[in-house]
Design a protein around this nucleic acid. Structure first.
Lengths: 195, 195
DNA sequence: CCTACCGATCGGTAGG
DNA sequence: CCTACCGATCGGTAGG
C-alpha cells in the first residue's frame, strides 16, 4: 500500500485552527500550515480558497457547533433555573472541549473582513440573546432576583471563558465537574432560590 | 512661536497601545504608529528601542497600574467580604477605564518573547493570587460558602473581562455602578451572607 | 559638534 | 504537487 493523500480540506482546517489558536492569524503563515501537513504552501490552495476564508470557516463551524449544543441542552427543559444551569454548563463544556476554536473566536474576530465578521457577530449575539432571555424570564417569574439581567447574563457568559487556560483534562476535576460548578455560580449570580 | 515637538516616548506608547488594541500587534506596522503621530516611521526609533519593547512596556505599565489600584483598594480593609467586593470593583473599573491596555494584555501576550512574557505572566498571577487568597480566607472563616475557591476566584476575575465590549461611558450606567454590580455578583458566587 | 528628523532603501518574508 | 516567482509590505537602519 502506498502513502495515502496527506492533505484534505478537513486536514487544512484542523491544522490552521490549532496554529491560529497558538500563534494568531497574522502570526501564522500559509507556509506554517503547509509544514504541519508536510506539503508546499501553494498546494494548500488546491483545498482552500484563501487564508481569510479558512479563518471564517473555523469560526463559523465553532459558532454553529456551540449554538447546536445549546439548543440540545435546552430541548424539553421548561424550568428556568434548569435552563440557566444547563445553558451555563453546556457553554463551559464547549469552552473546555474546544479550546482552539474558542481561542480563535475570542481573539481573531478583528481579522475577519467586514461582511464575514458581521455574520459571526450575529451568531455570537444570537447565543447571548438566549442566555439573556432565560435570565429575563426568570426575573419576570420571580424565580431569579437580579437588579440588571443584561449585565448578569454577560457576566455568566464570560465567567467561564478563561477556564480552558487552567483546566487540564487529566487533572483534579473532569470537564463535567467544572461545568457543574459554573452552572452553580450562574444560579447564584441571578439570586435563584436553590432547591 | 514655532511648532512644538509632536512626538515623545509617551506619545509613541499611547499611539501604539490604541493601535495594538484595535488591529493587533502583528496587524500594526511601525508606519501605522508613525502615521498617527504625523512623523516618519524611522523617527520612532529615536524614542523607542523596538516594536517588541513597545509591546512589553504597554503590558507592564498596565499590570503595574492594576496591581497598584488593587493594593490601594484593599488598603486598611479588614472584612473579607468588603475585600472581595472592593477587589472585584477595582478590577472591573480598571477594565472599563483602560479598555485598550486590557485588550492588549488579553490578546497579545503570545507575541511577547519568552523572558518578557514570563515577567508579565508573573504579575498577572500575582494579581490572581490575591483574589484567591481573599476567597480562601473567607471560606476558612466560614464567611463564604463555595465548594472550589480556586475555580470561584477565576470566575470572579474573568466575569467582568468583557464588560468593556458593551459598556459606553455616556450610557445608562456609570462605570462605578457597573463595577458595583460585579462586586455584588462576586459576593453571590462565593455564597456570602449579605448584610 | 549635537539632536531630531528626512527620503530612501536595507535584508527577508508575507499572501497568492 | 513542486519550484519559481509576483507586488506589497514588514521591522529596522543607512547616509546626509
Amino acid at each position: 500500500m502506498t502513502k495515502s493523500t496527506a492533505v484534505s480540506p478537513q486536514a487544512v482546517h484542523e491544522a490552521a485552527r490549532d496554529l491560529f489558536a497558538r500563534q494568531g492569524y497574522r502570526g501564522t503563515s500559509m507556509k506554517d500550515i503547509a509544514q504541519v501537513l508536510a506539503v508546499s504552501a501553494p498546494n494548500l490552495y488546491n483545498h482552500v480558497t484563501s487564508k481569510q476564508d479558512l479563518l471564517y470557516r473555523i469560526m463559523d463551524v465553532a459558532m454553529d457547533r456551540a449554538l447546536a449544543a445549546l439548543a440540545t441542552a435546552l430541548d424539553g427543559v421548561t424550568d428556568l433555573a434548569d435552563q440557566l444551569r444547563r445553558a451555563t454548563e453546556v457553554t463551559v463544556l464547549d469552552f473546555l472541549e474546544n479550546p482552539a476554536e474558542v481561542t480563535v473566536c475570542n481573539t481573531e474576530i478583528r481579522n475577519l473582513d467586514t461582511p464575514l465578521r458581521q455574520a459571526i457577530i450575529d451568531k455570537r449575539d444570537a447565543y447571548g440573546a438566549q442566555i439573556l432571555a432565560i435570565v429575563d424570564r426568570g426575573c419576570a417569574q420571580g424565580l431569579f432576583d437580579v437588579p440588571e439581567p443584561r449585565v448578569a447574563s454577560f457576566a455568566i457568559l464570560e465567567m467561564g471563558n478563561n477556564a480552558k487556560a487552567w483546566y487540564h483534562p487529566d487533572g483534579h476535576y473532569s470537564a463535567t465537574e467544572v461545568a457543574a460548578l459554573y452552572g452553580e455560580f450562574a444560579l447564584r449570580i441571578v439570586g435563584c432560590r436553590l432547591p
